[in-house]
Amino acid sequence: MSSGTIIGIVTFVYLGTFSLMLVGQILDKKGFQNAALFGAGGGFLLHGAGILSRWYESYSLGVGHVPLSNFYESLVFFSWAIVLIAFLSIRGEARNRVLTFIMPAAALMLGYASFSTGVESDIQPLVPALKSNWLAIHVITCFLGYSSFVVASVSGFFLLRNGHASPEAHPTGTVFYRCVMIGFIFFTVGILTGSVWAQVAWGRYWGWDPKETWALITWLIYAAVLHERIRKGRATKGVAVIALIGLVSVLFTYFGVNYLPGLHSYL
């Protein structure tokens, strides 16, 4: 089975999982929710297999490289990473609620990757600029950072909605802080490895390229989230609002920058 077929199947598994989750929450049936969780886990494993299979296919085409080199491959990895982070960082009731947001988001990304005519899904050889050992580590850490920020902001949204007296004591409050912090660490590593790579490839570690500048904007916003939380002593609604602004910034850093002129336009 080709990796494209696997990714197609995963898209529908994620959509099915999402429907089960919705039905489970509307009818308040534990059985549906458990089945949904099982489906999400299975889809996630298959998703990982799809990525590995594309990696293998690139080698049989004689242009072997990590499948992180174009927009299609980054969409597939990004959607895998948000499911990974959601599973790793959340337990119990909170996980089901956050996954109700994450699963359709992952399905949408995969659907867009597979069916949009604007996204080239063929395996291409690497252009000289991408032929570097920094490619994998830079892209993986950036996307794990993005994904943690997405999961953090979704839990932040629940903080806002619940209007809990002390959101920090709420399970999603814990998840929120943990994901912001993990995201901040990964994204810092992503920016640093990107800097080292830029120094090696272009002779400057920082050039105010739109992608670089937007990465800095995202980093500054989540730095503000962490500092506002310290200032208030806990994750308040204000902190959650800043995190949601951060989510917009993450999406712009990833998608929006493609519409600005710059060196990163291929990703």
Binding site: R91, G92, A169, P171, T174, F176, Y177, R178, R229
Partner: peptide, 13 residues
């Protein structure tokens, strides 16, 4: 609460 025992966020703050 399991979530809190796992990691106490308020303590960190």
């Amino acid at each position: 609460s399991p979530a809190l025992v796992e990691r106490s966020a308020s303590d960190t703050v």
